[in-house]
Amino acid sequence: MAAATDDAGDSNEMIRVVSSDGEHFEMPEAAANLSLVLRHMIEDDCADAAGIPLAVVAAKPLAKIVDYCTKHAAKSSGLTIEEAEELKRFDAEFIEVDTDMLYDLLVAADFMGVEGLSKLAVQRTADLIKGKTPEQNRETFGIVNDFTPEEEEEICKENEWAFQITKPPSRLC
């Protein structure tokens, strides 16, 4: 299955995709192959001039994904250390996005089956959560606390074992 990215060099065909809000994008076939869903559709000859419709991916995240896949497909195999580092820098900059875009990327990468991007977005989300108190996390992600104070106390008690070896950040209980 990994062979899909190997023929990046000799396949110059452009694959068209259409976002949920009707915008058209193009990327090399090797880039599209990084998406499990697109790859299967290409294999089944579903990629035509009209473009593959992606019903749940809006133009904004799709533009980012096309960007990501194109960059990664161009540098798929036989990376030198410098190239690998450059790709790492690209990833780090790429994922410096606001939470709204982050959600869009999480959903879209998951939907399209772009493994590398899924991991990148998930890692970024985890990094945002890490080392914060529940209150800080609620603020970052706009989570509404729907527990009553009594319930909260109850949960703390029930999961006391997980709050015991307290590390500096979370010491709510």
Binding site: T125, I129, P134, N137, I143, D146, E152, N159, F163
Partner: peptide, 19 residues
Amino acid sequence: HVLSFLPAQEAVQTCLLAR
């Protein structure tokens, strides 16, 4: 998947965020 990238302790502690 997001939780899987957190230290186990912090992953469990997310139970307090919301229902």
